[in-house]
């Protein structure tokens, strides 16, 4: 997949990725490029039809200067509004947004729910590591209760969001949750999400070895252990996070609906 990255430019080498050893965000990038590669080869999509946008955080670094695609590393929480703008200018673009749990559910929460409500044609890939990684490990809206972080040194008193439920209520038309320990399922879901004409949300539970002070391998092991596929059980299993495809429906997409207005009133 290195062909999809800018390994070096006129001012020198850009790789290795700036991320910590064993960071789940790096894996999400790898999975995404595998999905993109599949789509380019199977669907006849050109490389220049894709655009990647990120906000701020570890996940956002993926677009900082690594991608051999049109991309932008933008403002914390605002990637989805910016993606909306790109689609208003060129609805043919396939826009993929890398976001983190803080970026999409805290500062970007409002834009997240409206992007889903509008069913704008965007693929939202959320690297969810349950905290704010880039800034040193603070609590996030996705940090479970009781967890100690740098800003919850006595334990988190808040409950966490279920981002997939949030996406569902807001109106996203493809919703899935996997983990970095489920590469093939993640690639499959990302592929489906990019192909989806509408707001597609894929949450990937991801390890942050540094702030959790746990080795990447052990964290991946835990991700596998602490999750259960919704295919296996309809009930919530105590202490386990449900993963799988939660939603795959069809609803009119924003630019498609607006095009009817343009067609009718520009005559």
């Amino acid at each position: 997949m290195l062909k999809y990255l800018k390994e070096r430019g006129p001012s020198g080498a850009r790789l290795p990725l700036i991320l910590c050893p064993g960071c789940g965000a790096g894996q999400v990038l790898n999975y995404t490029l595998h999905a993109v590669d599949k789509i380019i080869h199977e669907d006849g999509i050109r490389k220049e039809d894709l655009a990647f946008i990120s906000g701020v955080g570890c996940s956002a670094r993926l677009t900082s200067h690594y991608l051999n695609f049109d991309s932008a590393w933008t403002l914390h929480g605002r990637a989805l509004a910016i993606a909306t703008g790109a689609l208003l200018a060129n609805p043919e673009l396939k826009v993929i947004v890398f976001t983190g749990d803080g970026d999409v559910a805290a500062i970007g929460g409002n834009h997240f729910i409206h992007a889903c409500r509008r069913n704008i044609n965007v693929t939202i890939l959320c690297v969810n590591n349950g905290l704010y990684g880039m800034t040193g490990g603070q609590v996030a809206p996705t940090t479970p209760a009781g967890i100690e972080t740098t800003t919850t040194p006595y334990g988190n008193v808040e409950a966490e969001f279920d981002l997939c439920k949030l996406a569902q209520t807001a109106g996203a038309t493809y919703i899935a949750r996997w983990t970095t320990a489920h590469p093939r399922q993640t690639i499959k879901s990302i592929t489906k999400a990019i192909r989806k004409k509408g707001a597609a949300f894929v949450e990937i539970l991801s390890q942050c070895p540094v702030h959790n002070k746990t080795s990447p391998v052990e964290m991946l092991h835990n991700l596998k252990k602490n999750t259960v596929s919704i295919k296996k059980t309809k009930q919530s299993e105590k202490g386990k996070i449900r993963i799988g495809e939660f939603c795959d429906i069809t609803r009119p997409e924003w630019t498609a609906k607006y095009q009817h207005i343009i067609d009718q009133y520009s005559r």
């Binding site: 946008i53 509004a81 703008g85 790109a86 208003l88 200018a89 834009h111 630019t255």
Partner: peptide, 24 residues
Amino acid sequence: GRFIQMEDEISSASVLLGASWAGA
């Protein structure tokens, strides 16, 4: 052209960034 009413001023201005980069 395309018009959208966004959810706040910050996202309204943010739309302009993506639109401009995409050529509009």
